[in-house]
Amino acid sequence: MKEIDIRKHEVVPKHTLLNEKEKEELLKRYNITLKQLPRILASDPVIKLLNGQPGDVVMIERKSLTAGQADYFRVVIKG
C-alpha cells in the first residue's frame, strides 16, 4: 500500500518545530515555562513524522474562519 503523508491532507494544519532560539523567544514572550504550554504527545502522527522529541515546541498554523490564520504552540511530551 502506498504510504500517505498526512501532512499533505487539507484538514491537517501546518506543523513546524521551533528551533532553540524561537522556543526561548516564545517562552519569554508569554513569561512562561515549558510546562505551561498546551501539550501534544510524541506519539502524535504528525509529531512522529517531524521526529519531534519531548521538550520540543511545535508551531501549528491553523486556518481560522474569523481570524484568517491562528498560530498555536504545543510542547511535545512523552507518550
Binding site: I32, Q36, L37, P38, A67, Y72
Partner: peptide, 8 residues
C-alpha cells in the same frame, strides 16, 4: 494552574 489554553 496558569497553563495557556489559547494564545488569543
Amino acid at each position: 494552574a496558569n497553563r495557556i489554553v489559547q494564545f488569543v
